[in-house]
Write a protein that binds this DNA or RNA. Structure first.
Lengths: 208, 208
DNA sequence: AAATCATTAGACAGACAGTAAATCCAAAAA
DNA sequence: TTTTTGGATTTACTGTCTGTCTAATGATTT
């Protein structure tokens, strides 16, 4: 699995493996239907590990949730890199949007719950805001490649439309619309807004 | 204030007043900056009332939060009624959208926190879903007045765009965009989608 | 004057986050 | 082999929060 051998031998490897097992257990519990109130104790039991081990590995419940989110986000990061290699703005924007739609969809329930928990968890809230800011920076840089001066408003709107809430809302809850359809809708909106912003007017205008 | 006198005299009136005071205290606490972990005890203290009184009045913490949301939503209900009196579809949709944007904006922080708490609170979650469904029904009925057969997809998309998450995302968090601007953006998107859906194509299409 | 009822204070059980100390055991180092 | 190290476990404790119960108070209602 891992490309380089652990420098400290089996012991470190075993520790890393329990860490992964705990993360996997947390992910499973959070994606389950009865995920209301996921306690550290429940995660520990699911990972077949003592509660203390969870604290040894992640410090706190917040730390565990933060690590879980970053684990999920790791894959998405690579996809975004590819968007920068696009030949033109439209393609780059589309790839960028699709990368995030794919990410949001990959663990939709887990991400939704993590974002909900962030409302009551200062640390987790800070991390998610940081990650959202990273998306904004990436978007700003991406637009700067093709546009002279990307206006803050344009960046803001596209930033929000490529966020989790927008995707989650468009993909539906109880009656889930297909991933492809939601992605298409978001992409279309992003494209329209970008066109409107670059073609003369600075802000998307309301009809009439 | 209230049009009809309480049939049970002062005692009932006093009880109703404490109920209101508790709701007001909860609203204040939830809208405050340090609203992480709002306990029943904190609400009781803020309302200058014993903890038990809160349970007498609302049954549980969930009951209190549900009552709070419905209190906030009460005003919005009337605005939606007016949308039905519009002369044409475009006006009706605009009024409908604006009514909800106004509502979402009226207590944005409180609503955001309530929706976050709903992730961990089955009862509150059920209530919010019910209210969201009511918005969907209202929208379906509204479209039925002007269109022969409003397609489910069209209703779904407009429904999601008039939801809290979409407004909250577009109005921004740390750097809040003006209410008017966010409302304009949502309204424009709704209008565009409705036009696209009624003019031939059944689904909004992606460019190219 | 007597019954009613909202309210209060205080105690209690149960769930959960987080901390601390003693112990076990396999892997690393001597 | 023997010793040391460090991850994991067990147990127990503190503190917070929800929810329930009981006894008492005091104003309103009858």
């Amino acid at each position: 699995m891992s490309p380089r051998p652990y420098h400290s031998g089996k012991r470190q490897a075993a520790a890393d493996e329990t860490r992964q097992r705990i993360l996997a257990a947390a992910r499973t519990l959070l994606s389950g239907a009865s995920a209301h109130q996921v306690s550290v104790d429940a995660v520990a039991k699911a990972a077949d590990v003592s509660r203390q081990t969870v604290y040894n590995a992640f410090g706190s419940k917040s730390g565990l949730l933060e690590a879980l989110f970053d684990t999920l986000a790791a894959r998405a990061g690579m996809d975004v890199q590819e968007a920068f290699a696009a030949p033109d703005a439209a393609t780059a924007l589309t790839r960028f949007t699709e990368a995030f739609c794919r990410f949001w969809d990959s663990d939709r329930t887990v991400i939704r719950r993590l974002r909900g928990m962030a409302v009551l968890d200062r640390d987790l809230d800070r991390l998610l805001r940081e990650r959202d800011e990273m998306r904004r920076s990436a978007l700003t840089e991406l637009l700067r490649r093709f546009t002279d001066a990307p206006e803050p408003e344009t960046v803001d709107i596209i930033w929000q439309l490529t966020g989790f809430e927008a995707y989650d809302a468009l993909a539906g809850r109880d009656t889930p619309r297909a991933h492809a359809e939601a992605t298409r809708t978001v992409t279309a909106a992003v494209t329209v807004l970008y066109d409107a912003a670059t073609a003369g007017g600075s802000t998307p205008r309301t009809r009439r």
